[in-house]
Structure formats: C-alpha cells, structure tokens
C-alpha cells in the first residue's frame, strides 16, 4: 500500500469539502429540521408509538440513513466524475498506484464527508427528541459501513456516467425510492403481507433495520441478516470496481 498517494487523494478531496463546508453542513441540518417539523410535529402527533418507540424517535435512524446514503452516493460519484469530466484524471491514472489505492483515497474521502453529515444530523435530532442508543458500537459500525458501501456505489456511478444528467438521474430514480421504500419512516411490519415480501428485495431495508436495531433494539429483520447484507453489498461493489480497473472500462481506452 502506498499511503502517501492515498493521503494525497484523500486530502485533496477533503479540501474541496471544506471549501464548501457551510453548504455541506447547512443543507442537511435544514432538511432534517424540516423532516422533524413535518413528520414529527405535524404527522407524528397523530401516529402512536411504532413498535413501542415514540414516532419522532422512530424516524431518527431512517432520517440519518436517508441523508448518509444520498450524500455518500452524490459525493463519491461527483468526486470521480469531475476529474474525468475536466480531464485531471490523467494524473491519477498515470500515477504509480493500483486500483485499491485510488478507491481508498476517493471513497475514503466521500465516506468521511457522509459520516460527518450523518453525525451532524444525529446531533441535530437531539434538539428535537431524547434518544437513547442501546448499541452504540453497532450503531457506529453500521453508519461507517453504510458510508463506505454507498460511496463505493457512488464511485461506480461516477465512472459509468457520461454526463451530468446521468450523474443526477440515477440517485434520483433509483437510490431515493429505495431509501424511502426501505422503511425510513415506517416499520416494514406496517405494510400488507405482499409488500413486506417485496420489501425484502430492497437491500436498503436491511441497512435501515440494522441501524434502527442499534438504536432501539428492535428490527424488521434479524441483525445478523443486516450485517451479512451490508458486508455482501460492500464486497459486491469492491468486486465491480476491481473489474472496472481490470478492464479499463470508461477509464482507460
């Protein structure tokens, strides 16, 4: 492993993030507040506790996941698409580094940003509702793995995209629906039987369920299934990226 090269990419990417720190920080905080106002105060008052958890508290893990997943995908996809678009990628591709080092640099930076935003949202939530996290270590583990796996997914998207429309369309058409239908704001058990089965094909369900388990010791699917799902998903993304670099697809003609 060539740590200096990884560090160079990581620092360069994080500088971009810090340059726009205020935006990176303000927009998730505002949208989280909006969710709390709409779902918590307005709608939540009419909903009883879900699975024994107060509704406002219930949606906190889902809210964090929603932001973390979309941020990870958009940060990572932009992070690799932008140098491809303006041509500066030549330097990374001609450097004496392998695919893993490139991925660790770019994905590490994107995941760090997403993690930062996830923690900011968690902190914001504490202003609205008292939360007790029953399994804090598992919670952090899930959060970190989600940041990494969705950044890997974003990296693939950024390599694949040929224009800015594609870059924005995929998160909008695929990621956001999967996250919304993944039980961010409800428990899968609240759905009719048929849709419960359909939901099990949505990988996001396992992540949100596991994450919520870390908070409230309650989950839609077993925590071990959730852990297995996120490890499989991460491994799958790494495999795809390995193939991309092996074949030079969309990177080296």
């Amino acid at each position: 492993m060539n740590f200096r090269s990884i560090q160079a990419i990581y620092v360069f990417e994080m500088t971009r993030f810090f340059r726009t720190l205020l935006q990176s920080f303000v927009s998730p905080v505002i949208s989280t507040c909006l969710y709390f106002v709409v779902f918590g105060a307005a709608i939540g008052g009419r909903i009883d506790a879900v699975e024994g958890v107060n509704y406002i508290a219930f949606i906190v893990p889902g809210l964090i996941m929603l932001s973390v997943m979309t941020q990870a995908v958009s940060n990572a996809s932009f992070g690799i698409y932008f140098p491809k678009f303006i041509g500066t990628i030549y330097e990374v591709l001609s450097a004496p580094i392998n695919f893993l080092e490139i991925v660790v640099g770019y994905v590490g930076a994107a995941a760090s940003k997403a993690l930062f935003i996830g923690l900011v949202i968690l902190a914001t939530s504490l202003f609205f509702v008292d939360i007790e996290i029953i399994h804090p270590i598992i919670m952090i583990l899930f959060l970190v793995f989600t940041c990494i796996s969705f950044s890997l997914l974003g990296f693939i998207l950024g390599v694949w995209a040929n224009n800015f429309e594609q870059l924005q369309l995929v998160p909008l058409l695929i990621i956001t629906p999967l996250v919304f239908l993944g039980g961010s704001f409800y428990s899968i058990s609240m759905l009719p039987k048929f849709w419960q089965v359909v939901s099990l094909f949505n990988p996001v369900v396992y992540l949100i369920s596991g994450f919520r388990w870390a908070f409230y010791d309650h989950s839609d699917v077993s925590i071990f299934t959730s852990l297995l799902a996120i490890i499989l998903f991460t491994g799958f993304c790494i495999f795809i990226i390995f193939i991309i670099f092996k074949t030079g697809w969309r990177l080296r003609p």
Binding site: V11, V92, P96
Partner: peptide, 12 residues
C-alpha cells in the same frame, strides 16, 4: 496545492 498533490500522488 495542485503541485503538492502531484508530488504526494507519486508517493514522494
């Protein structure tokens, strides 16, 4: 910064 990046990228 871009020059420092280039140097670091090449592992120096």
């Amino acid at each position: 910064n871009t020059v420092r990046f280039s140097r670091g990228l090449f592992g120096k």
